[in-house]
């Protein structure tokens, strides 16, 4: 991507500019930069599996397995916390159907549904998407979720923090208006 070649000064100028943008301007800016928005707009070719008013499902060009599908929202959202409730419901109902179609149509024996929010979680593009990956025995995929034994105290503490954030911090506006500028800037920072 072109941005990778910019120098430190240009990067700072860009970040300064981004900070001054309103959330609407920022979203417009991101949309123009976003390859998946161009796919949605048919400006970039893709292999479409399913499409409706809200979502587009396409084959991943770097599939974990044959049939690996990317389920995109047509609207540009960087990360899942920006999606309104209704869109989340719709997206995952489609994901469920895609999973079912993989079991029925391409002889898959299981599926993984994966969302990555943030670079540390493996997110590579700035457009929210759900991976639906057909699985078979011994297919060479080695997802690893190592188990870390936790003390009861740690479990309690972790739970209490989440409860506090859910009861105090989870505001309806947050999901409707989107993530904070910091979160978006973080995403932009590496791209």
């Amino acid at each position: 991507m072109a941005e990778q070649n910019i120098n430190q000064e240009q990067l700072q100028a860009l970040q300064e500019k981004l900070k001054q943008m309103s959330p609407e301007e920022l979203r417009e800016f991101q949309k123009k930069q976003c390859i998946f928005c161009q796919i949605v707009a048919n400006k970039v070719q893709s292999r479409k599996i399913y499409e409706d008013d809200g979502v587009l499902a396409i084959l991943d060009i770097n599939p974990a397995n044959p049939g690996h599908t990317l389920l995109l929202t047509k609207e540009h959202y960087s990360i899942m916390p920006q999606l309104p409730d209704e869109e989340i419901a719709h997206v995952f109902k489609v994901a469920k159907s895609l999973s079912n179609f993989m079991l029925k149509g391409i002889d898959s024996h299981g599926t993984n549904i994966i969302v990555a929010n943030g670079i540390a979680a493996g997110q590579r593009a700035q457009h929210f998407m759900v991976h639906v990956i057909p699985r078979k025995e011994n297919d060479g995929i080695n997802f690893a979720l190592p188990q870390k034994a936790m003390e009861q105290k740690e479990i309690e503490a972790a739970g209490d923090r989440i409860i506090a954030a859910l009861s105090g911090g989870v505001k309806e506006e947050k999901t409707e208006k989107g993530a904070s500028l910091d979160e978006i800037s973080k995403l932009l920072g590496v791209k």
Binding site: N112, I113, A158
Partner: peptide
């Protein structure tokens, strides 16, 4: 908000071959 996480994954393993 509460863990200073740099990211989150939503992950479903559906069926034994999927883990």
């Amino acid at each position: 908000e509460s863990f200073g996480a740099q990211g989150t994954n939503i992950f479903v393993a559906n069926g034994i071959p999927a883990g």
